[in-house]
């Protein structure tokens, strides 16, 4: 009854039932688990409360992760929101960055978090949703619904052949999908139609395609923590664009197909193996040595920054 295999079917369900994505998500879960609405909502409340606890601990903590790569930035950014005159971003955006940092820093220092959709991409959704929730002085029910809407998008992506695994598809599948889910959730919280929610997700994910997973030493720390923070802005921006009537030319389902298509072209060195990208920069290798990890095989290190292939255009532009 409330099953959907992709975003198109999800939107069709919303239109048939004349309701929001979150309500379809709740009915979907009731149907597959055989649980009551109250039980399903209670479970999501637990998710919400765990997120909030992680944020609250994270914005106060100053201790570092085991190797000292991350920790303490959430507090800096959160304290920064007290004087917005010095900053360019909106209070919602900066606070969302603080919350995302807090969540991922808590993850790095072994705190309790919700892997939404995964541990590595767990910051964007709570960052965006809680900051907007505070800004709008929204109701708790709307907050819960936004989480359901975000999860429904995740299900649609999985059912359409997508993945959340960076080992399979790089960071576009972790922080990328986290950002798309946050965009959809926050758009519903702001009163957007189901079409606007899915459109916001498409706008967000479209702009994260091709993102590599290249963490230092394979730890979920650099660049993951700050990446979650920066991308909250993409989610907020996508939601704004969508509500202002900007429509993604490529529909969401096809963006997911594009993501999987790109993942097939991705070298394994940038899929969570710590053998490429930032992980093999001079600084990255230095830190790896400090951590006492085994050195990276020589063959991965010889990929010097080559000259770009000769330009075939006969213009005078680049000489």
């Amino acid at each position: 009854m409330f099953q959907f295999k992709n975003c198109e079917e999800l939107l069709k369900l919303c239109a048939e039932q004349k309701t929001d994505i979150s309500q379809i998500a709740i009915k979907y879960e009731m149907e597959i688990s055989g649980k009551s609405r109250a039980k399903v909502r209670d479970k999501m409340k637990q998710v919400r409360d765990t997120m909030w606890e992680a944020i609250q601990t994270g914005i106060k903590a100053t201790d570092k992760s085991q190797y000292g790569l991350v920790g303490g930035d959430a507090k800096k950014v959160y304290d920064g929101t007290k004087n917005m005159a010095n900053l360019l971003g909106s209070k919602v955006g900066v606070r969302a960055m603080a919350y995302a940092l807090a969540t991922n820093e808590q993850n790095a220092r072994m705190g309790k978090i919700v892997a939404f959709p995964t541990a590595g991409g767990s910051g964007v959704v709570p960052g965006v949703l809680f900051s907007t929730f505070e800004h709008m002085k929204s109701s708790k029910r709307k907050m819960l619904n936004a989480l359901f809407a975000a999860s429904a998008l995740g299900i649609a992506i999985l059912e359409h052949g997508g993945t959340f695994s960076a080992a399979k598809a790089g960071c576009q599948a972790e922080v990328g999908i986290g950002t798309a889910m946050a965009a959809a959730g926050v758009t519903e919280m702001r009163g957007g139609t189901p079409e606007q929610c899915i459109n916001a997700a498409a706008l967000a994910l479209k702009n994260m395609l091709g993102l590599a997973c290249d963490p230092l030493g394979g730890l979920v720390e650099v660049p993951c923590v700050k990446r979650n923070a920066i991308y909250v802005n993409v989610a907020l921006g996508a939601s704004d664009l969508s509500l202002l009537g900007v429509v993604s030319v490529i529909p969401m389902d096809q963006v997911v197909e594009a993501m999987m298509n790109i993942s097939a072209h991705m070298s394994e060195t940038i899929r969570e193996t710590a053998l490429g990208g930032l992980a093999v920069t001079k600084k990255g290798l230095e830190l790896r040595k400090k951590m006492g990890l085994p050195p990276i095989p020589e063959k991965y290190l010889n990929r010097k920054i080559g000259a770009a292939p000769a330009c075939r255009n006969k213009c005078n532009g680049c000489g």
């Binding site: 637990q46 998710v47 993850n107 309790k112 978090i113 892997a115 999860s151 299900i155």
Partner: peptide
């Protein structure tokens, strides 16, 4: 999708 709740 919304979970699991776990220690990092």
């Amino acid at each position: 999708v919304a979970g699991p709740i776990m220690v990092g």
